[in-house]
């Protein structure tokens, strides 16, 4: 589906990605895990062409995304959605207007159909009561959900989620993940999810990858990951699962 080959990226002298190789399987729920500041967000931004790599290739539908012009990228971006870590909602617009925005730009639907679709999306993320609020009036978790609704509005084939559940309460985390899984199954999406949350990744993920010191050190199904012998991966898993094991 998406194939990342030998991706390198530095900011000034700070080497963030040092040869990332990763293949994201079609229709999978791929989790990218790794410590804070290891470049997970940077990696996602490469996949939609917001950042150009210093070296390396990203293949999607027979094209190397890193070589496309801005105009060619626009076509790719209608197929690949990205949920920003901080939401990136337009703060001059209400929640409903934010969700309606991509529909107004690209869907060709009538005003009424858009309204309808927006309400549908907002009720799916349990945000309908807040539809006329501005982003500055929302909590962090509400922003995430509004942004999620906006990302799903255009029915992309691939959606990249940058920490969609961080900062939400556990019940809402599951609601959101269930929602993601439901749309994924309904529309046959491929989902790429950046997260620190090991239990969540083990429960929902079909494919897991660990980013450490600028490379993918381990990847595979949850089962394969659990039996990994890579020292960083075992340490990461152990720290996350310690409390659960103790019980």
């Amino acid at each position: 589906m998406i194939k990342i080959k030998n991706l390198h990226k530095s900011f000034n002298s700070h080497k963030v990605l040092r040869g990332v190789n990763l293949e994201i399987p079609q229709g999978s729920m791929t989790f990218i895990m790794g410590g804070s500041g290891t470049g997970k967000s940077v990696l996602l931004k490469h996949i939609v062409g917001l950042i150009r790599p210093d070296e390396g290739e990203i293949w999607f539908e027979g094209q190397d995304i890193t070589k496309l012009s801005e105009r060619e990228l626009q076509k790719v971006r209608k197929k690949i959605g990205l949920l920003f870590q901080e939401g990136a909602l337009f703060d001059s617009m209400t929640v409903a207007e934010n969700v309606a925005f991509p529909l107004k730009e690209h869907s060709g639907l009538s005003e009424k159909e858009i309204m309808h679709k927006v309400e549908e999306l907002l009720s799916a993320v349990e945000l309908l009561p807040a539809k006329d609020k501005y982003p500055s009036e929302l909590s962090g978790g509400m922003k995430k959900r509004a942004s999620l609704a906006r990302t799903l509005a255009l029915n992309p084939q691939v959606v990249l989620f940058d920490e969609p559940t961080t900062g939400l309460d556990p019940i809402l985390q599951n609601t959101i993940m269930d929602l993601i899984r439901r749309v994924k199954e309904q529309f046959g999406l491929t989902c790429v999810i950046v997260s620190h949350d090991v239990p969540l990744a083990l429960r929902y993920g079909t494919y897991l990858a660990f980013l450490h010191e600028g490379v993918i050190v381990e990847s595979g199904t949850p089962k394969e990951i659990l039996s990994s012998s890579h020292p960083y991966v075992t340490k990461f898993l152990e720290s996350a699962l310690m409390d659960i094991k103790k019980e």
Partner: peptide, 18 residues
């Protein structure tokens, strides 16, 4: 400036709006 810092400009881009 605030749209740039809070990634709203990037959000426009990824929604295929120039």
């Amino acid at each position: 400036g605030s749209m740039r810092i809070t990634e709203q400009i990037d959000a426009l881009k990824i929604m295929a709006v120039n």
